[in-house]
Structure formats: structure tokens, C-alpha cells
Amino acid sequence: MSSLSPKRPAQARTWVDRLETLLTTAPVHLVVIVIALLWTLPTAGLLISSFRQPDALLTSGWWSVFVPPLDPTQFHLGNYITVLTRQGMGQAFINSLIITIPATVMPIAIATFAAYALAWMQFPGRQLLFVVIVGLLVVPLQMTLIPVLRAYNSLGLSGTFLGVWLAHTGYGMPLGIYLLRNYIGTLPRDLIEAAAVDGASHLKIFTRIVVPLSTPAIASFAVFQFLWVWNDLLVALVYLGGNQEVAPVTLVLRNLVGDRGQDWHLLTAGAFISMVVPLLVFLGLQRYFVRGLLAGSVKG
């Protein structure tokens, strides 16, 4: 053991060091905290307001709830109850689930099979097909709206869940195939071949080896597609039209803005209802979402 003497200066240096570090890093902390706050405030304001009384909302800013005296009774759930039962938000919430779940599962299933074929099966035109899919990644939806809508009208698919499911499946397909094929293509060739020698058919290789090993990529695409469909307004607006029976939360919220633009108690509660599921998905599965973004954009 060394003697005691060097200990004291060391301690002193640490203290000075710490102060110095603090001073040099203070601007960094300041900038990060300010930006994080700025980015959070709008949502926080909405959330707080959604629990306030309708008339209080119109006469004072949401930040006034922090002015003493703090009064817990000024908060209530009334806005939520009203918007859920009387403004169709409850039905819309169920509709959103009905739209989103199959519109997530269907493209995952289809894209994973296609991605496996593109990555590990031999067939003519394989490379060309994938190049086309990469190209389709950025085609604006707008390019497809009119012909698809016309086809839907003549097939009786507009205003139906099936129509929206299929549309979202189509629109999500390029990203799904791209993401999954890139991931599945990096699985070691030996694994696929070992399974083949072990006696697995393509379907067994797919279900027992490829799918379990690709769960991170599948989860990424699932989160991505789920958020995309849940948050979508354009596809719902065009293909569901004015059919309130099947309208998802985004559409109902948009109509609420149009009809009741100054009823802030309804808008804030409605907006939060439309946001709660994606926020939960996001907070719970952020890891996969980020990985999906990374894989989709930065690869190579």
C-alpha cells in the first residue's frame, strides 16, 4: 500500500476536476435539457389540458394549474367520457384496432415469405425483382390513390375493412421486404444448409430457423407498420370515405377538429386517445423501432 500523503492532493484534485468538468459540460447539459423540455412541452400541455374542466380550458392556459394553490379537484375524466361515448371515439378506437392488427400481420407474413425466397431460393429474375422493390420504396402513395379508389368503388371494397387491410398491406410491402430480406440475407448460409441436410423442407427451414432468428427484424417491421397504420390518415380518408362505422381514430379526430375546432376539452382528450396506443407501443418497443429505422436507412 502506498503512504497516506498522496491521498489528500488527489482528493483535492478530484474536487477541482469535478468543478471544472461541471463548468465545461454545463452548456452541454443546458442545451440538451432545454431541447428535451421544448420537445416535451407541447405534448405535456395537451395531456394536462385533457383532464381540465371545459370552461377552465378556455379561460386560462394549462400552465396555470401549477400556480398555487394546487387543486386536484380541477382535474376530471369527463372530457374522455364525453369524447369516447358521444363523439364516436370509442367506436373509432375499436375500428383502429380492427384495421391495424391485420394490416400489420398480413404484410409481415407476406413480406417474410417473399424476403426468404429473395434471400435463399434460386429463381430467375430474383435480383431484378428486388431492385424493383427498392425502387418502389419511395413511390408516393398519391400516385396510386385514384386508380385504386376507382377499382375499390367498382369492387365494393371502399368503406370496408378488407379494403384498408389490403391497401396497407400493399403500401407496407416494399419496406417490409427490403428490411427483412436485408436481415434474412445476412443469416449464415451454413445454418440454412445444415437445416436442409438435417432433413428440413423449405417451409420447415422457414418456420424453425429463419423466422426465430429473424425476430428482431420482424419485430422492427411490426412496430414500424403498426405505428404507420395506426397513425395513417390518408389511406383511411380516401378508401373509407365518410363511412363513420369504420372510421379509425385519426379520421374521427380530424373531423372533430373540423366540426368542434374550439372545443378544446374534446380535442385534447380525443387527441390523447388517438396517441395512447402508439405511445405505449413506442415506449415498450422503442428498441425494435429504432433498430428498424437503422436497418431500413443506414445499412451499407
Binding site: 420537445w39 405505428l227 422503442q286
Partner: peptide
């Protein structure tokens, strides 16, 4: 800090519009 700044990515354009109409 990252989660807070990233969070709006999960919010729909419609939801974000309502949030900012209020702002």
C-alpha cells in the same frame, strides 16, 4: 433525453396537429 426528443415520432400527423393547434 433521447426518448423525449424521439417520442413525437410515435404521434400521428393528426395528433401532432391537434397538439400544435393548441400551442
Amino acid at each position: 433525453a433521447k426518448a423525449l426528443i424521439f417520442l413525437p415520432m410515435a404521434i400521428s400527423f393528426v395528433g401532432a396537429s391537434v397538439i400544435w393547434r393548441f400551442v
